[in-house]
Amino acid sequence: MRYRPVVRHTVSVSELNFRLPGRLRFSEEMPENPAVPRDAATVVLLRDSDQGLEVFLLRRVAAMAFAPGMTVFPGGGVDQRDADESVRWAGPEPSVWAEEFAATEPLGRALVCAAVRETFEESGVLLAGTEKGVVEDATRFGDARQALVSRELSLASFLRDEGLILRADLLRPWAHWITPAQEKRRYDTRFFVAVLPDGQHADGVTTEAESAGWQRPQDALADAEEGRSMLMPPTWHTLTELAKFPSAADVLAADRTIVPITPTIVRDGDGLRVVVK
């Protein structure tokens, strides 16, 4: 798959008005010194099924310090080793990703590497291969996957040892969300989309999730609306966007301009609401 330059248009989120579940603890008070957001990457894995477009979702364990019990896409914080320039690369160069996400070139590189690493750690899907093809069976790298999770191994070392290159051409930029200033743990998260490679299987075998699986975006939204799951505003909004697409190919072909979105938490009666102005 070759990368097609993004034709820019503005992604509108002005309609977002999201009432937070009562089980979540947020403060409406703006802290005097808000926490500095940590850079992070999230990957929305896509596949086509007989029922239509599906996305891979994980339900985080209740003991997690951030977003406990929430249904999320695979992702996590950037590791300083994700900026390693020795990573062999196919697809858009780090400078292209830096421009898409309004970042420095080293951060652009680190975000893509973090996206690939976190996706492999949390779902077993490996967006890597050779110049001729993508890995078809990632289960043979199970030991390396665990070593990546424990931070005994860096992504650069893993790819080098296995003779693999990172396939940035499998990713597309999608969104940029920053945790509200009222939250103690904040993330500056860039969202990517990618199609499940042929032959690979998303298993969700991670200590951070109690369950995982594929769902149509509209079904995931229905679960949240009926109280069977909980979604953070970025996840809810992303699912709402994806529910409009008939196929993974249509998602990859979507025109995007990435703008940073920082929601605000406001009081709404006896509850709290997230709004984007």
Rank of each mutant, 00 (worst) to 15 (best):
R2F: 05
R4K: 14
V11F: 08
S12E: 13
E15F: 12
E15N: 03
F18W: 15
G22E: 11
R25W: 00
E28S: 12
P31D: 12
P31L: 04
V36C: 00
P37T: 03
D39V: 12
V44W: 02
G52C: 11
V55M: 00
F56C: 00
L58S: 00
L58F: 05
R59C: 04
A62K: 08
A63S: 15
M64H: 13
A65Q: 09
F66N: 05
A67N: 13
M70D: 01
T71A: 14
G75H: 00
D79S: 11
R81Q: 14
R88P: 00
A90M: 09
E93M: 11
P94L: 06
W97R: 03
E100G: 05
F101Q: 13
F101E: 09
A102L: 01
A110R: 07
R117S: 07
E118D: 01
E118I: 12
D137V: 14
R140D: 04
G142C: 01
R145W: 06
Q146A: 10
A147M: 06
R151H: 15
L153V: 13
S154H: 07
S157Y: 04
F158V: 06
L159D: 00
L164S: 09
L171F: 07
I178Y: 10
T179N: 02
A181S: 11
Q182V: 07
Q182T: 12
E183Q: 11
Y187D: 06
D188T: 00
Q200S: 08
Q200L: 06
H201L: 10
H201W: 00
A202T: 04
D203Y: 10
V205M: 05
E208A: 15
E210Q: 01
E210M: 00
S211F: 03
A212T: 05
Q215R: 09
R216A: 12
R216H: 05
M232A: 11
M232R: 09
P233N: 06
H237A: 15
H237Y: 14
A249E: 15
A249C: 08
V251Y: 02
A253F: 05
A254P: 07
R256V: 15
T257N: 03
T257L: 09
V259R: 08
T262G: 05
T264G: 04
T264W: 01
I265P: 08
D268V: 08
G271K: 10
R273T: 13
V276S: 05
V276E: 09
